[in-house]
Amino acid sequence: MKMRNFLMIVAMLFALSFVLVACGSSDDSEEGSNGDDTSEETDSGDSESSDEESGESSEEGSEGESASGDFSAAMVTDVGGVDDKSFNQSAWEGLQAFGDENGLTEGDGYAYAQSNSNGDYEPNLTRLTKQGYNLVFGIGFKLTDAITKVAQQNPDTNYALVDAVSEAENVANIVFKEHQGSFLAGVAAANKTESKQVGFVGGIDSPLINKFEAGFEAGVKSVDSSIEVEVQYAESFDDAARGRQIASSMYNSGIDVIYHAAGGAGNGVFNEAKDIKNNDPEAYVWVIGVDRDQYEEGAVTVDGTDYNVTLTSMVKRVDNAVVDVSTRAMEGDFPGGETIEYGLEDEGVSIARTNEEAFTEEIGTAVDEWQQKILDGEVEVPSTREDLETFLSEME
């Protein structure tokens, strides 16, 4: 009996030691797992901290850099808005195209912030920066001060400024040779006018819009120096009513072709021309659009017959520039501190030929001839009023 009890005790001790060994092994494994978990929690905590330091993207929502770490880009509009059918819209279409090409989703990989007043520029730029976008565009020269300030405060974020130059090292400056494209718009206007009176409606009287004005008048006068060119400014890029008022005055004075470089205010020019056409289908009134092909803006139907008052448009490929700079930034070749200029030679500006009925073959041939002269260096298109005066005096 004693021997039997002894064997039972030995067996129990053996079994207990096996259990203890197994438990010890399990504890070691769990301890290692806890260590890994602790590491993951630490990493996660660091990530959250990093997000907060880089702009509190975790608190702002999912509009910044995606969870997969994909490149992201955003833009801040000028007051004209993303649907101005002109400058801002072209930039947004470029950003959308970039997003589509690279599999990004709107609101995560790319987005825009609407500016309703000048006071919105800096807050919008700051918000997109905090949301973690890798590249933030400022659309329009009016954002220069705001983007320079925000860029200097956030040296680890890349920015791009359209139509002006910032001194910040992390800002890529995108400018265009608008005067070249406007010269060709002037050639088209000079070949289209019957009254020998054409008009130019600018947005804000500034060095940028003066480039459109100078190039346009130079193009008109190069074809026929006797043509009168009237210039007026709306002093706004979003006051369509003011644009319409100016256009009404011009058309009533005998002007039959108006070139606008006024953003949303230019919509008023189209509205006036279409209203005139609607009241009198035989009226000879034309509009030259700007920044993007504005052919659709000139469509009007009278008694079942379709008309279009858009002669042509000076297309400024803001969309292509946005795609180009975004791609370079994504590929690690961001041109920070550089100024990139797009002109006729690289199709940065061009003339739309959509309205084949109005933009005749004769006009197209004339435009092509003058374009070649510019590309060959035979014509140096003026970009300021001072240069225009010199240009015109040399023609005499």
Results as ranks from 00 to 15, higher is better:
residue 357 E to L: 11
residue 251 Y to Q: 07
residue 72 S to I: 08
residue 331 E to K: 11
residue 216 F to D: 06
residue 4 R to P: 00
residue 368 D to A: 15
residue 169 E to M: 04
residue 50 S to G: 12
residue 89 Q to F: 03
residue 290 V to Q: 10
residue 359 F to M: 13
residue 340 I to D: 05
residue 206 S to N: 15
residue 265 A to L: 05
residue 84 D to T: 01
residue 351 I to Y: 05
residue 61 G to N: 03
residue 355 N to G: 09
residue 24 G to V: 11
residue 341 E to D: 06
residue 289 G to K: 08
residue 216 F to M: 12
residue 389 E to W: 00
residue 321 A to F: 04
residue 249 S to T: 15
residue 257 V to M: 12
residue 215 G to S: 10
residue 238 D to N: 13
residue 303 D to S: 14
residue 163 D to C: 08
residue 117 S to K: 12
residue 93 E to S: 11
residue 377 G to M: 11
residue 247 A to R: 10
residue 10 V to L: 13
residue 378 E to R: 01
residue 163 D to V: 13
residue 108 D to C: 05
residue 314 M to S: 07
residue 85 K to N: 09
residue 225 S to P: 11
residue 127 R to Q: 14
residue 342 Y to M: 10
residue 293 D to C: 08
residue 125 L to P: 02
residue 166 S to T: 00
residue 386 E to N: 07
residue 5 N to G: 00
residue 87 F to W: 13
residue 386 E to D: 14
residue 173 N to L: 02
residue 353 R to H: 07
residue 386 E to S: 14
residue 212 F to E: 08
residue 228 E to I: 12
residue 234 A to S: 15
residue 273 A to L: 09
residue 60 E to M: 10
residue 369 E to S: 11
residue 389 E to P: 00
residue 323 V to D: 00
residue 353 R to K: 14
residue 138 G to C: 03
residue 336 G to A: 12
residue 184 L to V: 02
residue 272 E to G: 09
residue 14 F to C: 11
residue 321 A to H: 04
residue 199 G to S: 01
residue 275 D to F: 11
residue 324 D to K: 08
residue 231 V to S: 15
residue 99 G to N: 02
residue 87 F to K: 13
residue 20 L to C: 11
residue 66 S to W: 04
residue 219 G to F: 05
residue 114 Q to A: 03
residue 67 A to N: 08
residue 143 L to M: 05
residue 36 D to N: 11
residue 87 F to A: 04
residue 168 A to H: 01
residue 214 A to K: 06
residue 302 V to C: 10
residue 383 S to K: 15
residue 329 A to T: 06
residue 82 V to L: 08
residue 355 N to W: 05
residue 46 D to W: 14
residue 271 N to Y: 11
residue 97 A to K: 00
residue 126 T to P: 04
residue 293 D to Q: 10
residue 359 F to P: 03
residue 93 E to Y: 01
residue 191 N to A: 15
residue 255 I to R: 08
residue 29 S to K: 14
residue 198 V to T: 09
residue 38 T to P: 03
residue 181 G to C: 10
residue 116 N to R: 08
residue 294 Q to I: 05
residue 359 F to S: 03
residue 206 S to D: 13
residue 74 A to T: 01
residue 256 D to F: 07
residue 126 T to I: 08
residue 14 F to R: 03
residue 143 L to N: 04
residue 236 S to C: 02
residue 308 N to C: 06
residue 341 E to I: 12
residue 78 D to M: 06
residue 274 K to E: 10
residue 284 Y to H: 13
residue 321 A to G: 06
residue 315 V to S: 06
residue 128 L to I: 11
residue 326 S to V: 00
residue 39 S to L: 12
residue 342 Y to R: 14
residue 286 W to P: 00
residue 51 D to M: 06
residue 249 S to H: 03
residue 261 A to F: 00
residue 63 E to C: 07
